[in-house]
């Protein structure tokens, strides 16, 4: 594995993913604020949550890009569209499995079965994160597609 290339491409891809999701929120395609969603795992403070969430998401994305790199290494080929395919598959997993697990994993998220309580008051994402806006899945697919494409372009196989 080309570690230096992974560090660079993984960082670049995560930065693009975060930027696209943030832009999607700003443009009104989704209400989902991923840094806030992740940050509230560690703090209820809104401002701190955004700050912590951004860094956790950056580290998470960076680490996750190892999987992409390992898959490309095992395939012995890499290009932008294979990256896009991996990204879309990743997005599908996040939207279906990841989001449905979220109320159980997130210490401050309410569940549809029990409703909010004193410690769990955040709105759950629902199927495909549709509770956060009906275009949320599109934003997530797009961002992850770009994430995969960037790794596909900038990672050099060893």
């Amino acid at each position: 594995m080309n570690w230096l290339s992974w560090l660079f491409s993984g960082f670049l891809a995560t930065l693009a993913l975060s930027t696209l999701l943030s832009a999607s929120q700003g443009l009104g395609f989704t209400r989902m604020n991923l840094p806030y969603l992740i940050g509230t795992i560690v703090t209820p403070n809104r401002e701190k949550a955004r700050f912590y969430g951004f860094f956790i998401h950056m580290l998470n994305g960076w680490a996750f890009s190892i999987l992409y790199v390992l898959i490309f290494q095992s395939w012995h080929f890499i290009n932008w569209w294979s990256g896009v395919l991996l990204g879309l598959a990743h997005a599908l997993f996040v939207l279906t499995v990841g989001m449905s697990l979220m109320p159980g994993l997130h210490p401050r998220m309410a569940s549809e079965q029990h409703g909010p309580n004193a410690s769990r008051q955040l709105e759950p994402p629902g199927f495909m994160a549709l509770n956060y806006g009906f275009q949320t899945p599109l934003s997530v697919f797009l961002a992850h597609g770009v994430f995969g494409a960037i790794i596909g372009i900038f990672y050099h196989l060893k």
Binding site: Q25, T30, G115
Partner: peptide, 15 residues
């Protein structure tokens, strides 16, 4: 009302 997700769903008890 929230323009950011996840929204907060307040509890209706003594809080």
């Amino acid at each position: 009302y929230s323009e950011e997700a996840p929204a907060v769903l307040p509890v209706l008890n003594d809080a």
